[in-house]
Design a protein around this nucleic acid. Structure first.
Length: 739
DNA sequence: ACCGTAGAATTTTTT
DNA sequence: ATTCTACGGT
């Protein structure tokens, strides 16, 4: 049926570099794929080519990504490539294993839960759950939050796991670390007792299982002869070790990545994996994809110039055949909401010229910056869509409902129990809960077991136990949909939100939405069945699959895709995406690069890569903007322009001058109820200068005016020059140029 | 036990 | 500025 020779059309239109990557012999390779160089195309075409040339079967390929979105995209593009040839065949082929690291590990653990030492009903902790568990643990261990901050312990535990290390393998250089290690050990104990697994644990468990179990290891090593990895620069040490284990001595690892786009060091990504891969998998030279098909010349020139300033690079330069195109437009706003208004004006005018709103994006370094832009967009009546922020499955009412569902399959989940034992309020107060906790700790049992043991002593607890018991009894016998209905009804959550004063319609809507999600949920979509002889469907299978799905795919595929809306997201979230026009906002020192990054070694280079990612999102037009004055965390900041902007060659930048009329018009914009806007007045002028303004001095460089005193025929300006310090200068003597 | 209020703490990026 | 925590009143 399938020809042994790949169809010619498959390889058509590939450039020589891409062709070489796609048709690379069955051995390991590292593809350095610059931004917009057709990375996904190479990966998907490689898969199709391997299949069509008979070098691999659908069963012997594994493709690993980081996000569900990327996995989905790869899946659909591969089947598109394959179905082009044999369309009309209704045969259901076995699916190709394409998934995220966490998703694949999760499936393995479900399939081999006994070998992994996990109960069949184990649940996944998202980071919020993890933090809650850690807080609980610290309280139980009598460790004050001032001694060990929950967040820092969370970071410590995750970092260790991402390096593949258990508490027992760690040695402490100091007493404080010693305590952290002890807490880590206790944390793992607690997780085991409760049958819960955090994100990092999914990877580590899977890794340890493969390492310890030769039969399973052999099984997978024999199965896969081609392993393809997307965004390889983002792998952490554990993921790399896991890949090595899966590959064994025989599989070819085809890794695609870009060291210049490595922006996840803070969660353990280890760029060193790229050189390690070359060394350990006998790769002589990386294949470089340097032809960019996305951005116009000026934009690409800016990106190349910025990333040039990084010392630690594997070396790669993007080129394009495209025209130079428009220059980058740089706008300095006097104050943050003027920056927002600038975006609105430009987006509107682009729209008039026929650009699509949903092909424009507003990017920012941190989520906190989105608020003011959102307000302005709302006031101006421009539809927008914010990515990130609170996800559907993170909302409290959803987490409440899911906690009941979790208890129905695994009542020992203390996290879930504590979340809902008195939500909605049913008269079980702190005192009672403390009693249960004490009893549980004393006997070394779960809270659920302790609660059951309270017997007639506490009628209210008994009622709760009956509620959960009834849910447990239903779980194996009814459909997921009925189960979800039972949970929302019997728990009293719906009733609670209905009677609670204040408008909780959105919460009720979300609960309805959750039921809809349960109705629409098809366990097969989570690809459980891909693994061989999957455990015969346990009656709890649909519920387990649904809960896992909720934890692992925390609402990436949000609704509202249909509407034409301006896209708003962090730079991190924008990686892998492209837009006709990009607004890169908040380009101020301390914001981007963030002041946190400057403290750590290599932090600045990571920020610069982030800048590189941001610039290369733009196809046709790039706006860069900053606000000289910005309200942040309730305080006014006077920012100076980001060093990254100054790294862009001036000849590709077109500087836009501030527009005072807009400045005024926003002040009395309709519906501008925001207090910030109401109290704002035009700033006082001091001999042509004003506070917050950016100025350049021949010797001190660029600075920001933070104070000014009028002295009649001149003004004394206090200017913060950043590295050069704060200087007092007189307008009469100092030569200052407004930036 | 619950609820409302005041005060304190917290602010990067997230599979 | 917002969110969480602690406390005191009902």
């Amino acid at each position: 049926m399938l020809s042994q020779n790949p169809s010619a059309s498959l390889l058509q239109g590939l450039n020589p570099e891409q062709l070489s990557a796609v048709t690379w012999p069955p051995q390991s390779a590292l593809v350095l794929a610059g931004a917009g160089s057709g990375k996904t195309r190479v990966l998907t075409t490689r898969i199709a080519w391997l299949l069509q040339s008979g070098q691999a079967t659908r069963y012997s390929i594994m493709a690993v990504t980081f996000t569900n979105k990327a996995a989905k995209e790869m899946n659909s593009r591969v089947s598109q490539l394959l179905h082009e040839k044999d369309s009309g065949e209704p045969t259901r082929e076995s699916p190709i294993l394409i998934g995220t690291f966490h998703g694949i590990c999760h499936r393995m653990l479900r399939r081999w839960n006994k070998d992994a030492g996990l109960p069949s009903t184990f649940q996944i902790l998202d980071s919020g759950d993890q933090l809650a568990l850690i807080k609980r643990l610290l309280k139980q261990l009598n460790i004050a939050e001032e001694i060990i901050a929950p967040r820092s312990l969370q970071g410590f535990i995750n970092a260790q796991k991402e390096n593949g290390l258990r508490a027992s393998q760690l040695t402490a250089p100091d007493p404080h670390t010693q305590r952290l290690i002890e807490c880590y050990a206790e944390y793992d104990k607690t997780c085991n007792r409760e049958g819960v697994v955090d994100f990092a644990e999914l990877m580590l468990r899977s890794y340890e299982m493969l390492q310890a179990n030769e039969i399973l290891r052999r099984h997978y090593q024999n199965r896969f002869n081609h392993i393809l990895v997307d965004e390889f620069q983002d792998t952490n040490k554990l993921q790399y070790a896991w890949l090595k284990l899966m590959a064994g001595d025989t599989a070819a690892v085809f890794a695609v990545g870009d060291d210049d786009q490595s922006i996840y060091r803070f969660r353990g990504a280890h760029v060193g994996n790229m050189t390690a891969l070359m060394r350990e998998f006998n790769i002589e030279e990386p294949i470089k994809l340097e032809q960019n098909y996305r951005s116009d010349g000026h934009i690409l020139a800016a990106a190349n110039a910025v990333i040039e300033n990084n010392a630690e690079r594997l070396g790669k330069n993007l080129r394009t055949d495209a025209e130079n195109g428009d220059k980058i437009r740089f706008y300095t706003a006097p104050i943050d909401f003027d920056e927002a208004q600038f975006i609105i004006d430009e987006a509107k005018s682009l729209q008039r010229e026929g650009w699509r709103l949903d092909h424009m994006a507003v990017l920012y370094r941190s989520n906190a910056q989105s608020r003011i832009i959102e307000q302005a967009l709302f006031a101006a009546g421009i539809p927008y869509k914010i990515y990130g922020g609170l996800r559907f499955y993170e909302r409290q009412e959803i987490k409440h409902a899911l906690a009941y569902l979790r208890l129905a399959v695994n009542p020992d989940d203390d996290n879930a129990l504590l979340r809902v034992i008195n939500t909605p309020p049913r008269g079980i107060g702190i005192r009672t809960i403390e009693n249960i906790q004490a009893a549980a700790a004393e006997q070394g049992i779960s809270l659920w077991q302790a609660a059951c043991g309270m017997g007639a002593k506490a009628a209210k607890v008994a009622a709760f136990v009956r509620l959960i018991d009834s849910l447990r009894a239903q779980a194996p016998n009814v459909s997921l949909q009925e189960m979800m209905l039972a949970v929302t009804r019997d728990s009293g959550l719906v009733e609670y939100y209905k009677t609670q004063k204040g408008d909780h319609q959105d919460r009720l809507d979300n609960l309805d939405e959750l039921i809809n999600a349960a109705v629409a949920f098809r366990p097969s979509e989570s690809n459980f069945e891909i693994l061989p002889d999957n455990a015969a469907e346990s009656p709890l299978f649909p519920i387990l699959a649904f809960l896992s799905n909720a934890a692992l795919e925390s609402g990436e595929n949000q609704a509202g895709a249909g509407e034409e809306a301006l896209q708003m997201m962090t730079v991190h979230a924008a990686k892998g995406l492209e837009f006709d026009a990009v607004f890169l906002t908040g380009m101020e020192e301390g914001l981007f690069p963030s002041e946190y990054s400057l403290a750590e070694r290599g932090g600045l280079e990571e920020e610069r890569r982030l800048m590189y990612v941001a610039i290369t999102r733009a196809k046709k037009r790039l706006y860069i903007s900053m606000a000289q004055q910005r309200l942040l965390h309730g305080q006014t900041h006077f920012g100076i322009v980001s060093r990254f902007v100054e790294e862009i060659p001036p000849e590709v930048i077109h500087r836009l001058s501030p527009a005072p009329q807009r400045f005024n018009s926003f002040t009395d914009a309709p519906k501008a109820k925001n207090r910030i806007i109401e109290t704002y007045d035009l700033p006082q002028q001091y001999h042509g200068f004003r506070i917050g303004q950016n100025v350049r001095h021949a010797k001190f460089g660029t600075g920001v005016i933070i104070d000014a005193v009028d002295k009649g025929d001149s003004a004394r300006l206090t200017i913060n020059f950043g590295k050069e310090g704060v200087k007092d200068l007189d307008t009469k003597f100092a030569k200052l140029e407004v930036v």
